[in-house]
C-alpha cells in the first residue's frame, strides 16, 4: 500500500464506455459509505474526485481502448497503479463497440458524420488487457455492486479476488428457475455464459444474451448447433456470439465459425 495515506487508495477510471459500470459504486448505498471508512478515493470523476495522474493502490478501469490517446492514458494508469481491475464488457472484452472490428470503420465514419476530420479514433476497440497487464477481470454488462465490493474486500485482506466462471445455469438451478431453453425453446446463452448476474434474465423469462462473457469451459459449437435445431440460422447463431462480448476469444471464434458455415449443413 502507498505510504502517503493512512488507508489504501482507490481510483475509478473511465475509457470508451457508457458509464454504467461505475454505477456499481454509485448505487451501492450504505456499502459506499462503509467503503469510504476503509479506503481513500483518489480519482473517480463521476463521483467528483479528480486526480487522474496520482499513484493509487487499487485501480478500477471501465471502458475499452478506442483512441490513440487512450493507449497512452492506460499505460500511464498501469504505471501508477498497484492492482488493476477491469470492470465490465468494454474494459474486459472490448464491448459492443468492438463490433466495428469486424467492419471497415472508415466507411462507418463517412456514413455517420458530415466530415470525419474531427473524429480521432482507432479502427478497433480492444479490451484493456490488449495493451497492459490486468490483475483481475470482472465481467458483466454492467458489473454489479456485489462483484466490486467482494473484489475490494478480498484485496483489503491481501488476497487476489476469486472470480467464479461457472455457467449461468448453475445459478438458475440454485434459484429454482425453470429452464427456458428446455421448456420454452428460447435460445438461451446461459450454458456458455459466466455466472455473476444472479441469472437475472432467465428469472424474468428472457433468454440470457451472454453479457457476462464466456464461462470457463464453454462448448459454443454444441450450443450453436442446438440453437439451429430451434430454428436459428447460422447468421442468427453467429450474432448470439458476436454481441456484447464479441471480442472474448471463445465467443469471437464461435461467431466466426457459424458465420462461415454453409446453410445446407444438416
Amino acid at each position: 500500500m502507498l505510504q502517503d495515506y493512512p488507508k489504501p487508495t482507490l481510483a475509478v477510471y473511465k475509457f470508451t464506455s457508457c458509464d454504467g459500470c461505475q454505477l456499481a459504486f454509485l448505487n451501492a448505498g450504505v456499502a459506499l459509505l462503509e467503503l469510504t471508512n476503509l479506503i481513500t478515493i483518489i480519482h473517480f470523476a463521476e463521483a467528483g474526485f479528480v486526480a487522474p495522474t496520482q499513484a493509487v493502490d487499487i485501480a478500477f478501469v471501465e471502458g475499452s481502448i478506442s483512441t490513440l490517446d487512450e493507449i497512452t492514458r492506460i499505460q500511464q494508469i498501469r504505471a501508477q497503479s498497484n492492482y488493476l481491475i477491469t470492470i465490465g464488457a468494454c474494459a474486459t472484452a472490448g464491448g459492443i463497440q468492438a463490433l466495428r472490428n469486424f467492419a471497415g470503420s472508415n466507411n462507418w465514419l463517412k456514413d455517420i458524420y458530415a466530415t470525419s476530420d474531427t473524429i480521432d479514433s482507432l479502427k478497433t476497440s480492444y479490451p484493456i488487457s490488449h495493451y497492459v497487464k490486468v490483475d483481475t477481470e470482472l465481467w458483466g454488462c454492467p458489473v454489479n455492486t456485489a462483484q466490486v465490493m467482494v473484489a475490494i474486500r478480498s484485496l483489503l485482506f491481501n488476497a487476489a479476488p476469486q472470480v467464479k466462471r461457472d455457467s449461468v445455469c448453475m445459478d438458475c438451478k440454485r434459484r429454482g428457475r425453470v429452464c427456458i431453453l428446455v421448456s420454452q425453446q428460447q435460445s438461451c446463452m446461459g450454458p456458455v455464459t459466466q455466472t455473476g448476474c444472479g441469472s437475472l434474465c432467465p428469472g424474468l423469462n428472457r433468454a440470457c444474451y451472454g453479457c457476462y462473457g464466456p464461462s470457463e469451459n464453454p462448448n459454443t459449437q454444441s450450443l450453436g448447433a442446438a440453437f439451429k435445431k430451434l430454428g436459428l440460422s447460422d447468421v442468427d447463431v453467429a450474432r448470439q456470439f458476436h454481441h456484447i462480448n464479441n471480442q472474448a476469444p471463445a465467443f469471437h471464434q464461435a461467431g466466426n465459425r457459424f458465420k462461415t458455415i454453409p446453410i445446407w449443413v444438416a
Partner: peptide, 28 residues
C-alpha cells in the same frame, strides 16, 4: 463434443450431493 459442461444434469439429479463452501465477509 456434445456436452455443454453447464452442470444442469447434476443439479436436477435428485441424488447428486456435491457442494462447495465459501466465506462471505462483511465489507468492514
Amino acid at each position: 463434443e456434445r456436452c455443454l459442461s453447464c452442470g444442469n444434469c447434476t443439479l436436477v439429479c435428485p441424488t447428486c450431493f456435491c457442494h462447495s463452501e465459501r466465506d462471505k465477509p462483511s465489507l468492514e
